[in-house]
């Protein structure tokens, strides 16, 4: 034996699933949606995503290099994840400088001011998006039409906005269109099926558990079901399944619940806490969608529930062994 014996306390095995590995898996899980989005909206999608990712990585690098002490952590891919998620929350037609501003807000303000990965209380990509939505409302709500099969009925509005303003009913778009993304919207939210594929990949890689996404979508569906029942359900029974399905598939419901609400540092530490968190997101989203000022409420709902996470962590403890 050439070297001295190495000594350390047990355990002597470590998982091969490192932080970088997890973040890379999230990026991989987002790729199908990126592909579908590119097909739907054209190469603009790639342009926005590339700018967003590059800006996020560069901002994180610069801040770690010049403003905070400690090792560089850009190799852990977390800035890439934030970049892709931020891009997925923007319309494909957005000017490049707005993307850069969004990336700055996401990384510099929402993430690094709190100490970087694992310490940020709010989802950085969503903070970036909401900032842009408030600062640049026109650019942020000008949706390009899909390259093929444009919808006259929607006339450049997202399905959620169109339904909200009473232009069309929730049945205007077929389930097939909603699943495949043939509608205007943010570049990552239009392809429900591709996002679900990513969800399955994340479950298979054990990056996330099913609890938060499924609970959010179930809460939304249930909420929509009761709203339908309370309004026109009796005269139009088809609405009882159309409205829930529409709310689950349209807008950022799937993107938000699978990729944003499950963000590690901004979601509760326990399964039980996660379920409470998820129910909260589902309810707040539906409240905003149906009665709020904005047609889409996913990002606000997630940010609001992010604020509750420390409280949930304090009061919701895991099920202790041997304690009734």
């Amino acid at each position: 034996m050439a070297n001295k014996l190495i000594v350390a306390p047990a355990p002597h095995v470590q998982t091969s699933q490192s932080t970088a590995c997890i973040m890379r898996d999230v990026v991989i899980a987002l790729m199908p949606a990126l592909v579908v989005s590119t097909i739907v909206f054209g190469v603009d999608v790639l342009r926005v995503t590339a700018i967003s990712v590059a800006a996020c990585v560069v901002f994180e690098f610069l801040i770690q290099k010049f403003f905070v002490n400690g090792p560089l952590t850009i190799s852990n891919w977390s800035a890439v994840v934030t970049g892709v998620l931020l891009a997925f929350n923007l319309p494909a037609s957005i000017p490049w400088w707005i993307v850069v501003i969004g990336a700055f807000v996401a990384i510099a303000i929402a993430k690094m001011t709190f100490g970087g990965l694992g310490k940020n209380p709010f989802n950085p990509a969503l903070v970036g998006r909401v900032f842009l939505l408030i600062a640049y409302p026109v650019q942020m709500t000008t949706w390009p039409m899909p390259v093929q099969g444009a919808f006259d009925a929607l006339s450049g509005a997202t399905p959620l906005a169109a339904v909200k303003h009473g232009a069309v009913g929730p049945d205007a778009l077929g389930v097939q269109d909603l699943l495949l993304g043939n509608m205007p919207g943010s570049l990552g939210e239009v392809a429900a099926l591709a996002l679900l594929l990513g969800f399955v990949y994340l479950l298979w890689r054990r990056v996330i558990t099913w609890h938060i996404p499924v609970t959010i979508l179930a809460t939304m569906a249930l909420f929509a079901f009761f709203v339908a029942l309370g309004t026109k359900g009796t005269e139009n029974p088809a609405l009882l399944w159309q409205l829930p399905l529409f709310h689950v598939l349209a807008g950022g419901a799937i993107l938000g619940s699978v990729f944003m609400a499950t963000d590690y540092s901004t979601s509760p530490m326990t399964v039980k806490g996660g379920v409470i968190f998820a129910v909260g997101i589902g309810v707040v989203t539906m409240l905003i969608r149906l009665w709020g000022a904005y047609p889409e409420g996913m990002s606000f709902a997630i940010l609001m529930m992010n604020a509750c996470v420390p409280l949930i962590n304090k009061y919701v403890k895991p099920k202790r062994f041997g304690v009734k």
């Binding site: 070297n3 350390a8 095995v13 090792p71 970087g116 530490m269 895991p318 202790r320 062994f321």
Partner: peptide, 27 residues
């Protein structure tokens, strides 16, 4: 030696994997 040496620690990402792995339900 390769298996024995611990990998370099980085910051906690609050993934809660330790919480769900703990057989005694601790944090």
């Amino acid at each position: 030696e390769r298996d024995a040496r611990r990998r370099e620690a980085s910051q906690c990402i609050k993934c809660a994997k330790c919480v769900s792995a703990c057989p005694m339900g601790l944090e």
